[in-house]
Each structure stands twice: as C-alpha cells, then as structure tokens.
Design a protein around this nucleic acid. Structure first.
Lengths: 117, 117
DNA sequence: TTGACAAGTAACCATTTAGTTACGTATAAT
DNA sequence: ATTATACGTAACTAAATGGTTACTTGTCAA
C-alpha cells in the first residue's frame, strides 16, 4: 500500500530531480530547492509534499526556514520489485551473446570455405 | 525522454501486475490477461497500450488473437537511476549497524560493571 | 453460412494531477 | 518598528488518467 505511493512519487521527473538535488546537498531549504525548478514555489511545495508522504524525504523547521532531508530507504520497495526483472534481462543478454557468438562462428566457417574455393 | 514513459508505465500497480503476469507466462492473449484483472477488457487494453508505448511489451497478432510478450530491457533505465540510491541506503545501513554495535558494547560494559558491584 | 469469439474504435465520464494567483503568517534584519 | 524574507493556505484551472458502455470488425468453428 505504501509501495504504490513510492512508485507514483518517483514517476515524475521533477520529483526525481528534487531527490537528486537532495542527494547532492542534503538538508536544503525550500527556496534553495526552488532555484533549480522551472515552476513556482507552490508547485515545488506540492511535489515535496508528495515526496514526504511517500517517506522519501523528512523535514525539520528551523527558524523561519524548512530543511529537507533525503531518506532513500522506501526506494527499496522499487528495487525489490525490479530485482525479478534484472534476472530476466540478464538471461536475454546471455541469449543475445550466444547468438552473436554462433553467428560469428558460422561466418568464420563461411570465410574459411570461401578462402578454400 | 523515454525513461519518463517507463517510470510512468510502471507507477501503476495494475500495469505492474500485467508485467508480472507476463513474466510468469509470456505471450498471453488479451482475454487471458483480462482474466486476472478487476476491470473491463477495454481498461486492460489501455494499460497494455501504455506498456507497449514504453517498450515494456511487444505484441504479435496471430489469427484473431493478439499475443503479448514481455521486454524487460527498458526497466534498466529505472534500475540505473536507482543505483545511485542503493549506495546511499547501504551507507545508512552501515551507520545503523555501527550504532547498534557500539550500543551493545556499552551495554555489555555496563553489565560487567554491575556484576562487579 | 451462420454464429460465437477475440479484438478494435469511439464517445463519454469522474477524479486526479500539475500547475497557477492571491493572500496570510511568522521570523529575521535594519 | 518597519520592512523584507521564508513559508503556508485557499481557491481556481487545464489537462491527463483510469475507467466505462456501445458498437464494429475480423476470424474461427458447427
């Protein structure tokens, strides 16, 4: 039930950008975060709210400013869903490599045959 | 630019469910996929369209039915974005373990002191 | 060849999303 | 004490999302 929130939160590239920004400089204030965003302060606030609801950031108010801190742990939900598919695309990659190898082998055989003729 | 589509596609749990279903039995027909979905056939079709746009499934029409095949490779975009954060939560985990160890150590010290007294 | 089955298209609807402007409140600085 | 700064709330909008029903088209089977 919370997993869905995390997926949704992370589905928007503006929100990913906010997380990335915090990953580089944690504890940024709202106006600082706004600086790199192509929208109004209120727009950014709403995105931050969604990230907080998903548990991806925590906040602390100090004086008149609000600090934002990254918490990457809920991303483990995404990661664990993904892990099943990592296996799949590795298998695909293996089959592809295999195909390439066999193709090369048959081409080499053809070259040798051509050289002989 | 395509990455966003993949994130969006995967953000919906019904669509993840469809992918999971194909991961278990690849090449399913539309009506087969509908069976496990709590919505009309048209609803499922729309979800499948979105998955196809994101490159997560491919389709082949044979006779009067349409077969659906999983292609997990676009999920690598999600995975590679995530990889930066895996590092972060591992560091967090390390710090937590460290804290636990130190707490246990100090408790043991206290126990020994109590035993002596 | 007629009927059943699988899929596609069109039009519609309710809700959510992603943003805005305008105004209000609390804290810091002059 | 006043002003500027940082944030919050409310109300509104346009567009996207997630779903529906009704009808059509194509294909297999009796």
């Amino acid at each position: 039930m919370e997993t869905e929130q995390v997926f949704k939160a992370v589905a928007d590239h503006h929100r990913r950008q906010l997380l990335d920004s915090l990953a580089q400089a944690n504890g940024q204030t709202l106006t600082k975060l706004c600086a790199s965003m192509p929208m109004s302060r209120i727009g950014v606030m709403k995105h931050l709210d969604i990230l907080e609801q998903a548990g991806l950031i925590t906040t602390r108010k100090v004086g008149r400013e609000k600090l934002h801190f990254l918490d990457p742990t809920p991303l483990q939900n995404v990661d664990s869903w993904l892990s099943g598919y990592r296996q799949l695309w590795n298998e695909r990659m293996d089959r592809l490599e295999d195909l390439i190898n066999r193709t090369q082998a048959s081409e080499q055989a053809k070259e040798q045959k051509d050289a002989k003729a």
